[in-house]
Amino acid sequence: MIKSFCPKIFDSFAFSPSLGASGGILIVWNSSIFGGTLLQVQQFAVVIEFVSRHNNERWNLVVVYGPCQGEARDNFVTWLYHLNIPVDENWLLLGDFNFLRFMDNRNLPGGDLNDMFIFNEIIGHLGLLELPIKGRSYTWSNMQDAPLLEQLDWFFTSVDWISDYPMTEVLPLARTASDHVPCMVTIKTSIPKSNIFRFENYWLELEGFMDCVDSSWQKQSRKGHITARIADKFKSLRMCLKRWQKNISKLKTLICKCNSVILLLDELEEYRTLYRHESNFRIVVKSHVEKLLDLQCLYWRKRCTIRYIKVGGENTKFFHAMATERYRRNSIASLKIA
């Protein structure tokens, strides 16, 4: 099941099963980058210690799915309050806590003040620091015409985490299917990219591709031998495709722009009910995102080939990070002339 939606490089996982249609936690990782040790599995949380294969740095991840009510909620509160977080370790806690911290964490009047006091007391007791979500006030919607919006998803770190990883950010993504806003926790880095030409399989699905190929192939070649003419035509085709691809938008950019539109409409919905044409436009954009994601699937499928079996980590972020390190080491910042 996991292999059906995760890239092959994510070969390790831990989970807490769902109860009916609610709950459930799944964590997947690449064992060539991180070694993962499962510390706890609860009905409402999974705790894993990760160790970097690169520099042996250790950090702990806690992913929670807080119960809404009943005895399970009481057990979750008790477990979270007594969670042991040493002051000299790096911890990242995230997930759907199903708690509000303040009255303005929902767009409509209401909220349980006692729950807010309990949640804030736990945060203070554990000495956690909140990672704010950039540009969003709420993370959950009941998906009604006049929606109830709340912030139920939270991201916290230990004090040491902020010192070691000061560029940690939580970025909201477009809510395309779930009633929760997907979020991405990032630690920024920059990796140089190669400028070599690559043919992309998804080009076959784009308008204008066959016209470009046909016009290039019809050009006359001055080469004498048949094999030389074919090689010359392929070289000409490569140049034509390089020029053609500059005129098409990159998939990542298109998906990013569509998600930005969805994100903008989601944010607007926090202040007022969307008009009919705005709601319909969001549906159209979500449908377009699905088509773009299908093309992106073709893009990445090409990169999951037998070559990965031969060269291993070349397709991993760890390989990219090592390439960046070599790039920095080999670069010449300045020359001193005596």
Rank of each mutant, 00 (worst) to 15 (best):
residue 31 S to T: 05
residue 196 I to C: 12
residue 75 N to E: 13
residue 212 C to N: 08
residue 191 I to Y: 11
residue 35 G to N: 15
residue 171 L to E: 09
residue 4 S to P: 01
residue 207 E to V: 04
residue 227 T to E: 15
residue 287 S to L: 06
residue 70 G to S: 05
residue 220 Q to R: 07
residue 331 S to N: 13
residue 322 M to D: 03
residue 85 I to E: 03
residue 281 F to W: 10
residue 298 L to N: 10
residue 166 P to N: 04
residue 277 H to E: 13
residue 6 C to S: 13
residue 106 R to V: 05
residue 26 L to T: 08
residue 136 R to Q: 09
residue 39 L to Y: 02
residue 208 G to F: 03
residue 237 L to E: 01
residue 293 L to H: 02
residue 241 L to K: 01
residue 30 N to T: 03
residue 76 F to D: 04
residue 6 C to T: 11
residue 276 R to E: 12
residue 233 K to P: 03
residue 169 E to R: 12
residue 86 P to V: 04
residue 27 I to H: 04
residue 290 E to G: 07
residue 182 P to V: 04
residue 215 S to R: 11
residue 101 R to Y: 05
residue 250 K to L: 15
residue 203 W to K: 01
residue 80 L to P: 05
residue 35 G to D: 15
residue 57 E to T: 09
residue 113 L to F: 13
residue 221 S to G: 06
residue 249 S to W: 08
residue 195 N to V: 10
residue 328 R to K: 14
residue 124 G to L: 08
residue 115 D to L: 14
residue 28 V to K: 01
residue 192 P to I: 08
residue 270 E to R: 05
residue 239 M to Q: 12
residue 85 I to P: 00
residue 200 E to L: 10
residue 274 L to V: 07
residue 15 F to E: 07
residue 163 S to Q: 12
residue 127 G to A: 05
residue 95 G to K: 00
residue 165 Y to C: 08
residue 197 F to P: 05
residue 245 Q to R: 13
residue 302 K to W: 00
residue 159 V to C: 09
residue 217 W to P: 03
residue 295 L to R: 08
residue 124 G to E: 09
residue 289 V to P: 03
residue 185 V to P: 02
residue 26 L to E: 00
residue 307 R to M: 09
residue 153 D to Q: 01
residue 181 V to L: 14
residue 307 R to W: 13
residue 71 E to Y: 11
residue 200 E to A: 05
residue 40 Q to G: 01
residue 207 E to A: 14
residue 278 E to W: 05
residue 73 R to C: 07
residue 305 T to F: 12
residue 215 S to M: 13
residue 186 T to S: 15
residue 149 L to E: 02
residue 17 P to F: 04
residue 62 V to Y: 06
residue 34 F to L: 12
residue 71 E to P: 00
residue 13 F to H: 13
residue 337 I to H: 08
residue 284 V to N: 12
residue 218 Q to C: 13
residue 325 E to N: 09
residue 113 L to P: 07
residue 101 R to A: 13
residue 221 S to H: 04
residue 109 P to H: 13
residue 326 R to Q: 00
residue 159 V to T: 09
residue 268 L to S: 15
residue 54 H to V: 03
residue 39 L to W: 01
residue 298 L to F: 02
residue 1 M to S: 12
residue 61 L to K: 00
residue 309 I to C: 10
residue 194 S to H: 11
residue 152 L to K: 02
residue 193 K to N: 08
residue 311 V to W: 14
residue 223 K to P: 00
residue 156 F to P: 02
residue 258 C to R: 05
residue 75 N to W: 02
residue 324 T to A: 14
residue 274 L to F: 07
residue 320 H to E: 07
residue 128 L to F: 09
residue 46 V to G: 07
residue 324 T to Q: 15
residue 317 K to F: 10
residue 15 F to H: 12
residue 289 V to C: 15
residue 310 K to L: 06
residue 151 Q to M: 14
residue 64 V to E: 03
residue 95 G to L: 02
residue 191 I to K: 04
residue 291 K to Y: 11
residue 292 L to F: 08
residue 317 K to M: 14
residue 275 Y to V: 10
residue 63 V to M: 07
residue 316 T to D: 00
residue 82 H to N: 13
residue 220 Q to W: 06
residue 70 G to V: 08
residue 201 N to P: 03
residue 272 R to Q: 14
residue 77 V to F: 09
residue 91 W to D: 03
residue 121 E to T: 15
residue 307 R to Q: 11
residue 279 S to D: 08
residue 166 P to D: 04
residue 262 I to E: 03
residue 202 Y to P: 00
